[in-house]
């Protein structure tokens, strides 16, 4: 199954550089989804950051990166998490072991990427906004189910957003 990857490379400002990146991707069966050329954000070494996203099978993506690292400077590489959800949690979020909650939500397909907690007073319920990203809508759906289960067990109220699907 192909997945979405994103990578940022730094290219010298001379002709033919982009081709060095695109060629290995294409040769290994990667399908380029987007190229973002950040000419205005030149690095101190006068290189241009270029963000490229592509679809490829996991194994092939690794090979692509291996080859690229020989040719150009790869600044960042990772799987693109495509599905995102923000949830509001109300209850004793901290006292019911917040790190346990997050550990149980995170897995290889989904993870908590942002957390914003407010604690009004001692013994009063606190409020947390938690953002979860996942590599697919299905993985996100499963992560949401995990959150709901954990919160039911910890007596925390989960407020979900209204999404496009009903």
């Amino acid at each position: 199954m192909s997945e979405l990857f994103t990578l940022i490379v730094e290219l010298e400002d001379k002709p033919g550089q982009l081709l060095k990146v695109l060629e290995p991707i294409a040769r290994n069966g990667g399908n380029i989804v987007g190229i973002f050329h950040q000419r205005g954000k030149k690095t101190p070494l006068n290189r241009i950051p270029v963000e490229i996203s592509f679809r490829a099978e996991s194994k092939k993506a690794e090979k692509i990166i291996e080859e690229l690292q020989k040719e150009v400077l790869v600044r960042r590489f990772g799987k693109l998490r495509t599905a995102v959800i923000s949830l509001l949690l109300i209850g004793h979020v901290i006292h019911t072991d917040l790190s346990d909650t997050i550990k149980r939500v995170d897995n290889s397909d989904a993870e908590c990427v942002e957390l914003n907690v407010t604690m009004p007073e001692l013994n009063e319920p606190s409020t947390a906004m938690i953002t979860i990203t996942a590599k697919s809508e299905e993985a996100l759906e499963r992560a949401l189910e995990r959150v709901k289960e954990i919160c039911q067990e910890k007596k925390i109220m989960v407020i979900e957003p209204i999404n496009d699907e009903i």
Binding site: L88, I90, N116, T118, E124, P125, T127, A128, M129, T131
Partner: peptide
């Protein structure tokens, strides 16, 4: 009945209301 006023502050920072 269990909604807190803080819930609105946190939600609104993300562009939501309840």
């Amino acid at each position: 009945n269990n909604i807190t006023p803080q819930a609105f502050s946190v939600a609104m920072a993300k562009g939501y209301t309840i």
